[in-house]
Amino acid sequence: MSSSTPLSQRLTSLDVFRGMAIAGMILANTPGSWSHVYPPLLHAEWNGFTPTDLVFPAFLFIAGVAMAFSLSKYTQENKPTAKVYGRILRRCALLFALGVLLNGLSFLLGIHSNLRILGVLQRISLAYFFAAIAVLNLKRRNLWILSGAILLAYWAAMMLIPVPGFGAGDLTPEGNVAGYIDRLVVGTQWMYKQGQFDPEGLFSTLPAIVTVLTGYFAGDLLRNKSVTSDTSMDLVLGGLSSLMLGHLWGIWFPVNKQLWTSSYVLVATGWSLLLLAACYELIEVRKIRRWGLPFKVMGLNAIFLFVASGLLVRLLYVAKVGEGEEAPSLYTWIYQTLFAPWAGDLNGSLLFAIANLLLWWLVLYAFYRKGWFLKI
């Protein structure tokens, strides 16, 4: 039921974990009505942590785990060439462009009033790029030092740098340092809803780099240790330690997804480690794999699912059923006609999201059967 040699092949458990994350994203992002959503499927309003707050950092963590395998061939003796750096830059630039494309479509369709530059895919792109550069150029010990330094420096900046009109240590949406720097560098006209704060802003991407690096540390552990329950337990102990440290730090620097606070990095990493440990133990160690197939199907085409589902939702929002200003969008009409009447507002809203998820799963299962895996 276990192997005495380190794991070198593709981690099926990581594909399953990625599929769980993308499934959580679909459920959280596509309720039938935003007025009727179960609390666990909502982000914390500001400070705090809900299951939905784990989805985004889980993607970054997973990217870091995969990085430990994909970049393992490059060492101090076998240094990466300019071609390797170019490949990483190309991949990250394409990911960034896809995010801008989705934002641009929202702007052109009139869903949003401005063209937002940053977003989820853009943050993944930037965080992955800088983490990869660090991994390729620093020894493991120095990566740990860099990670700690970023989290401490971000904490110090958020608490000690004064914002005009608000002072130092103000962690409100309008008064925090991250938002202030983004307003200066990016400009409110390019920020989320032209507001004073962007939840995927430029400055708060710094601690997100550490989220990728924590995944890299986990992947490096898996790559170098035997496939046994002891390795799973190492992940569990790391997860519990990260959770405790994160919540302790949260006393002084609150756990906040939108600010991507240092305490949030540790809490999200803790839960990611525990979920990865569970998937690893069941799939790699105990060889219990059948349960993971539905998630694996989605995990192998996660970027495609993110982009394609985002495009479909935008089109459903702008398509109208009927005429006049009061005509509902096709998205709302489907919810109100097919789900809410028999399941109720709240359950109907959840079932709408589940139906959307099942629809995409069928599409991706067809891709899986044909061997179509779209990569960047």
Rank of each mutant, 00 (worst) to 15 (best):
L206C: 00
V255T: 10
A44R: 11
V185E: 00
L346W: 03
K139L: 09
L330V: 13
A63E: 00
S272F: 02
Y368T: 07
F253V: 03
I181A: 12
P6Y: 04
G344Q: 05
S106H: 09
L346Q: 12
G201F: 01
D15L: 01
T337H: 09
E174M: 11
P207K: 11
Y368E: 04
S8Y: 09
P173Y: 01
L206M: 02
E284A: 05
G179R: 12
A153M: 11
L282F: 03
A149Q: 10
S4H: 09
V177Q: 02
E284I: 01
F352N: 04
W46Q: 05
A28W: 00
G201Y: 04
G310E: 08
P328C: 13
G310P: 04
G99H: 02
G310A: 08
P6K: 07
L222M: 12
L312W: 13
G292C: 00
A366H: 02
E284R: 08
A278Q: 07
G86S: 13
I133H: 01
F166N: 05
G239F: 02
S204A: 12
F59W: 06
T75M: 03
A58N: 02
V363T: 04
L14P: 05
P173W: 03
W360Y: 13
L245N: 03
K225P: 02
M233T: 10
I124T: 14
S272P: 00
L312D: 10
L237G: 08
G86Y: 13
P39T: 08
L240F: 10
A127H: 04
A319E: 14
P162A: 11
W190C: 11
L54E: 09
Q122L: 14
P40D: 11
F17S: 00
T5F: 08
H43T: 04
L152W: 09
S125G: 06
M159Y: 10
L60P: 01
L300N: 14
S262K: 03
V135S: 07
G110T: 05
Q189E: 09
D15I: 03
T52F: 14
G110V: 06
L213W: 03
F352H: 14
I303H: 03
L362F: 11
A28I: 09
L245P: 04
V212E: 04
V135M: 06
L305T: 15
S232R: 01
Y368P: 00
K83I: 13
A178P: 06
L109C: 07
K139D: 15
A157K: 01
L14S: 11
F96K: 11
K73A: 07
I124V: 15
S242F: 14
L240T: 13
S229C: 04
E77R: 13
S3L: 13
L102T: 06
F295L: 14
A208S: 11
G119Y: 05
V236P: 00
L222E: 08
V297N: 06
G24Q: 02
V267E: 01
D53F: 05
G322T: 09
I376T: 14
Y192Q: 12
S4C: 06
V163T: 07
L330H: 06
L316K: 12
R116I: 05
L275Y: 14
A168T: 03
I251E: 12
W291E: 02
